[in-house]
C-alpha cells in the first residue's frame, strides 16, 4: 500500500488518515508494555523491515540511550529544559523530565543490526527483520 497520487495534498491527507487508522492498532499484539507512554512512537513497515519513528524534540542526542535485546527495544533518557535566570515565564507548555519505555516488536528482529538516527527532534530506528523470520516462497514440485 504505497501511496502515490497526482496531488501532493491528497497524499498528505491519505497519509494522515493511514496513521489515524493504525492508531494504537493491535499490531503490537498482547505486548502492550509501555503503550502510550513517553515518547510517542509510530511504527512503519518498509519491505521486510521495520522503521520506528519517535518524537523527541529538544532532547540532546547524548541523553538518549537505546538498548535492544531479543525482540525488545528500550528507549530511555532525559529531556532537560533550561530557562535563563531572571525571566518571567508567560507560558509553559513544554515538559521536561526522564523517560524510559520499551517497545516489544511482534516479530523476530536482528537486535545487533538496528540503526538509529536523530534528526530535527525525530529519532528513527531502522529495525531489520531476522532472516529466519522473513516470508519465503515455497515451490510446488
Amino acid at each position: 500500500m504505497i501511496m502515490r497520487y497526482a496531488d501532493p495534498f491528497d497524499t498528505l491527507f491519505a497519509f494522515q488518515q493511514a496513521l489515524e487508522n493504525r492508531q494504537l492498532s493491535d499490531w503490537l499484539g498482547s505486548s502492550t508494555a509501555g503503550m502510550g507512554s513517553y515518547p510517542p512512537i509510530n511504527v512503519f513497515q518498509q519491505g521486510d523491515d521495520l522503521v520506528a519513528i519517535i518524537e523527541l524534540p529538544g532532547v540532546n542526542k547524548a541523553e538518549i540511550n537505546i538498548q535492544a535485546k531479543g525482540d525488545t527495544i528500550r528507549i530511555a533518557g532525559r529531556k532537560s529544559i533550561d530557562y535563563p535566570e531572571d525571566v518571567s515565564l508567560h507560558r509553559r507548555e513544554r515538559l521536561s523530565g526522564a523517560f524510559d519505555r520499551t517497545l516489544v516488536v511482534p516479530m523476530q528482529i536482528e537486535p545487533d543490526a538496528i540503526k538509529a538516527e536523530y534528526n530535527n527532534g525525530l529519532l528513527a530506528l531502522f529495525i531489520p527483520r531476522a532472516e529466519q523470520d522473513k516470508p519465503r516462497t515455497i515451490q510446488i514440485r
Binding site: 500500500m1 504505497i2 501532493p8 497524499t11 498528505l12 497519509f15 494522515q16 493511514a18 496513521l19 489515524e20 487508522n21 493504525r22 492508531q23 494504537l24 492498532s25 499490531w27 503490537l28 503503550m35 502510550g36 510517542p40 512512537i41 509510530n42 511504527v43 512503519f44 513497515q45 518498509q46 519491505g47 521495520l50 522503521v51 518524537e55
Partner: peptide, 20 residues
C-alpha cells in the same frame, strides 16, 4: 511544514501520534 517524501515507501502498522 513536514517533508512527507521522507515517508515514501513506509507503510504505517502502529501509530501513537499523527504527523502534519
Amino acid at each position: 511544514r513536514i517533508d512527507f517524501n521522507k515517508y515514501a515507501g513506509l507503510q504505517p502498522v502502529y501509530s501513537e501520534y499523527n504527523v502534519g
